[in-house]
C-alpha cells in the first residue's frame, strides 16, 4: 500500500440529491401529519368539556354561638361568614392575586401561596395581592342565609335578618 489511497469524498463535495430529497420529504410529511392531528384536536376544542359543578348559591345556618368578628367557614365553600351587631356578611376566600384559597387566622386571612395577608374585612395588608377580597351577596330566608358566590356586593354591606 505504497501509493496514496484515493481520498474519500469530502463532506463539502456536492452530495447526490436523492438522500436529501428523502429527508426533506419525510420531514414535510411528518409535519403535515402532525398538523392534521393537531387540527383534529383543535376542532374538538369549541365543545365545552365541563363537569357540572354544584350551584354557586348555597344555604347555610350560622351557629348562634359565633362570636363577633370570628369567621364561620361553611365546609366545601370558599367563603367566610361573619356576624356582628350590624348584621351578617360574607367574604370570599379566593385570593385576588392568583386565586389560592386563603386561610383564616386569628385576625384576618393569610394566603398560603405567596403570603398575602388580608384583614377580616378583606383589605390587603401585606403581600402581592392587588385588590381586597370580594364580598358576596347574602340574603336571609327565615333564619338561614343564602350566599351567592357569583354576586358581589360593595365591601361593608352587612345584612340583617
Amino acid at each position: 500500500m505504497n501509493d496514496a489511497p484515493q481520498s474519500p469524498p469530502s463532506r463539502l463535495d456536492p452530495e447526490a440529491i436523492p438522500r436529501r430529497d428523502f429527508l426533506g420529504r419525510s420531514a414535510l410529511w411528518s409535519t403535515a401529519a402532525t398538523l392534521a392531528f393537531a387540527a383534529i384536536g383543535m376542532a374538538r376544542l369549541p365543545r365545552a368539556a365541563v363537569v357540572s359543578s354544584p350551584s354557586r348559591k348555597f344555604r347555610v345556618r350560622i351557629p348562634e354561638t359565633l362570636p363577633d368578628g370570628e369567621p364561620f367557614l361553611p365546609s366545601g365553600r370558599s367563603v367566610a361568614l361573619f356576624r356582628d351587631s350590624q348584621g351578617v356578611w360574607a367574604v370570599s376566600l379566593v385570593c385576588t392575586h392568583l386565586g389560592c384559597i386563603v386561610k383564616a387566622q386569628q385576625r384576618g386571612f393569610e394566603c398560603p401561596c405567596h403570603g398575602s395577608r388580608f384583614t377580616s374585612s378583606g383589605v390587603v395588608e401585606k403581600g402581592p395581592a392587588p385588590a381586597p377580597l370580594v364580598w358576596h351577596k347574602v340574603t336571609f330566608e327565615g333564619d338561614e342565609c343564602i350566599v351567592d358566590e357569583d354576586a358581589r356586593v360593595p365591601a361593608g354591606t352587612k345584612v340583617r335578618a
Binding site: S75, G76, H97, C100, P112, C113, G115, G127, P128, P130
Partner: peptide, 26 residues
C-alpha cells in the same frame, strides 16, 4: 377547590418563579 394546602409550594424547580410572584405583579 375550596382548600389550598398550606404552604402551597410549586415543584422545586419552579420555586424561583414562585418567589418572584411574592414581589411582582403576576
Amino acid at each position: 377547590t375550596a382548600r389550598t394546602p398550606n404552604p402551597s409550594k410549586a415543584p422545586w424547580y419552579f420555586l424561583g418563579l414562585q418567589e418572584l410572584l411574592v414581589y411582582f405583579d403576576p
